[in-house]
Design a protein around this nucleic acid. Sequence first.
DNA 1: ACATGAATATTGGAT
DNA 2: ATCCAATTTTCATGT
Lengths: 253, 253
Amino acid sequence: MFHDQVIEPDPDALVAFLDEHLRDGRMVVQVVAECEVVYHGRAASVADAGDYVVMVKSDGSLQVHGYKGVKPVNWQPQTDDVWVGIEDGQAVLLAERRSPEEMVRIVFLETALAQALHLREGSGFVLMGSEAEMQRALASAPELIEPGLAVLDRELPTDVGGIDLFGRGADGSLVVVELKRAKATQEAVHQLGRYVTRVRELTGEPVRGVLAAPTISKPALAALARHQLVFCEVTALPEPEAAFAQPGLFDGA
Amino acid sequence: MFHDQVIEPDPDALVAFLDEHLRDGRMVVQVVAECEVVYHGRAASVADAGDYVVMVKSDGSLQVHGYKGVKPVNWQPQTDDVWVGIEDGQAVLLAERRSPEEMVRIVFLETALAQALHLREGSGFVLMGSEAEMQRALASAPELIEPGLAVLDRELPTDVGGIDLFGRGADGSLVVVELKRAKATQEAVHQLGRYVTRVRELTGEPVRGVLAAPTISKPALAALARHQLVFCEVTALPEPEAAFAQPGLFDGA
DNA sequence: ACATGAATATTGGAT
DNA sequence: ATCCAATTTTCATGT
């Protein structure tokens, strides 16, 4: 898993280390260093000298992390080429990508540490509470939306977008359901309104619109009312499941 | 910058190491280990045993990286509490967050490496090519959108959303401009259509709609035409600036 | 390759 | 605290 490491390498040693391990397509390579980072592609950015953790994963994706935040300061999804070399006596890493054409260039000013890791692929990963899961659950139990609702379609495509759930109510009218796994915003209301209008135009039948989500923002609820649409509370995760919190087992901070 | 590390620590040593350095609010702490990760909050997930790099930054944010991809397998923005301890003879890390209420729990099965880094804040960061920048540029040079256009407002709020640029054309009609820094999609067309309709309702005047973006998808262009709206090509970055690509300076892969 | 839409989106700004 | 909109969004999926 942990493979190789050099501490405070000089530029030549760093380049040699990177060159060796970046060629090996199974390695995740990290460099902890004071560096400058330049990006040019979809946008462009310059980061002046600062301390960062540079991580190049085995798929060629690259990220430059600062001292805070989940998001890297700079990054690049799966690159096509990563080159290293010496320029003006300093180690430089250049990552390039076609489609879109972009590049990240890192100058290592002072390197604290470089390491190569071999991370074996995880054996399994399951995510619960996605919108897709909600959609399946509601398709099998449409009474959670309204009594007597019969689901006719899921992801029904129209020229203004895909309708999450499409059905017919107990009153005989068509029902368009827009689903959100998190709090619904005005944008979701606009989406729903667009679908309802279009289905009315296409069918000439009475159409009702339902926004199904765990919660809804106050402005969105007001907008719903204006458009004579309905909110329906549905949760993405079935149970709160308080099974994990185990106070007393951990040392308090 | 590089502060401290332990190689292949046993659970007790790992917990002692983490406990010491996580308390220090300036440290970025990394653990390279085979581990299991459970998340529960906005959604829920379980990752079976696999090799990961766990990074806890000095703001309490946490991310668990696998061997590929920019996105972590698991993560948590700025947590409120990080606890470590021993459970069933194994080192466990629990990161919790209020608002939203969620937690990530990591069981370290076999630890290759743990280290603490002190990353000083970078001195400067500049990003070019944001939509805000485009907006400023076009507000000062509205002829890039159409000759004779006079800009009346930026980010003009309406009850259906904020209009990026609002002005009056040489023909006397009102002009609504929707701006995208990247390729425009159908969603942008819907947004623009909504604004145009609303402004027509509110003013009773003739209103034209312009979608300004570097490119537009084919379906979006068709939708624009149906709604009698116009596309205008504007680039987010002023120049391609081929100043960075320096072939020949780097060792080929 | 292109287009679409979800995401534990994250993050910053405005109210 | 809430809400909204941008993002180098990334990523999976479908065509």
